[in-house]
């Protein structure tokens, strides 16, 4: 075990407030691994990552941008169930919608690790750095261990509430998404399409006008905006 991981594991025992522990983990991960920031995202279904904790605004943005564009390292890490390491975001051709906007926001490298337990894969720990360059091997081992810690904390939080309900931290994300899901349902009826196509239409509009999906969704729900096929 390296010094960084020892620091983290050592601090875990002193956590007074488990509800704040995911935020703490994001900050600690970033500091100890020489990253600029980190975010813990849940991925409730195929390609809709949402943060339940982030070290800073930009870490949060890295994940939110993927929710809007429908592509990116966090989504790939969840889909494939393995780490996605992108040391040079400026030159990659992997995510034509995500990468340029992330780079424009000052994100130079992204590393995404799935939160896995057995066969289940329910979220992703995403790191970013404002300079390009690889994640050193020794740090990758620590990063994977931190993904395990993030996994453990998230499940410990959820284990405290009865089945059928969501822990407050996760509930907050579900609440943020409310308007997006409502708009998806409306677009399904208006365009006669299924839920996946409906959210794709919503995302395409948000991307085209350069606004967050939530804002465009709110316009649809309040009927200020009606999307055409």
């Amino acid at each position: 075990m390296t010094r960084q991981l020892a620091t983290i594991v050592g601090s875990l025992g002193h956590l007074g407030d488990p509800d704040a522990s995911l935020d703490w983990l994001c900050r600690t991960c970033a500091d100890e691994l020489g990253m600029t920031g980190a975010a813990v995202a849940l991925v409730p279904s195929s390609n809709d990552p949402g943060n339940i904790a982030a070290s800073d605004e930009r870490a949060s943005f890295v994940v939110d941008l993927q929710f809007t564009s429908g592509e990116g390292p966090t989504i790939d890490a969840h889909r494939d169930g393995r780490p996605v390491l992108e040391p040079e975001l400026a030159t990659t051709t992997r995510w034509p919608a995500f990468a340029p906007e992330a780079v424009a926001a000052g994100v130079a490298a992204v590393f995404a690790l799935p939160l896995q337990i057995g066969a289940a894969n329910f979220g992703v720990l995403t790191f970013y750095r404002d300079r390009p360059g690889p994640l050193r091997d020794a740090f990758l081992v620590d990063a994977l261990a931190m993904a395990d810690v993030a996994c453990e904390i998230t499940l410990c939080l959820q284990a405290r509430v009865p089945p059928g309900s969501l822990h407050e931290v996760i509930e907050t994300l579900a609440t943020e998404r409310t308007v997006v899901y409502q708009a998806t349902g409306m677009i399904m009826v208006q365009l006669g399409v299924g839920p996946e196509e409906a959210i794709a239409v919503l995302r395409a509009r948000a991307y085209a006008v350069g606004r967050p999906v939530c804002e465009v969704a709110a316009d649809v729900v309040s009927r200020r905006l009606r999307l055409d096929p």
Binding site: L42, P44, S45, I117, A120, F122, T154, L155, Q158, A159, P163, G164, S165, L166, I170, A174, R177, T178, Y181, Q182, A183, T184, G185, M186, I187, M188, V189, Q190, P195, V221
Partner: peptide, 25 residues
């Protein structure tokens, strides 16, 4: 627990989507 998390979250999403469907229809 991981499965309960997913099930509860998806149930929330489905309810909100259904509200949207009924509102539009």
């Amino acid at each position: 627990v991981s499965e309960q998390l997913q099930v509860a979250f998806n149930a929330r999403a489905v309810l909100e989507q259904a509200k949207g469907v009924v509102a539009a229809a």
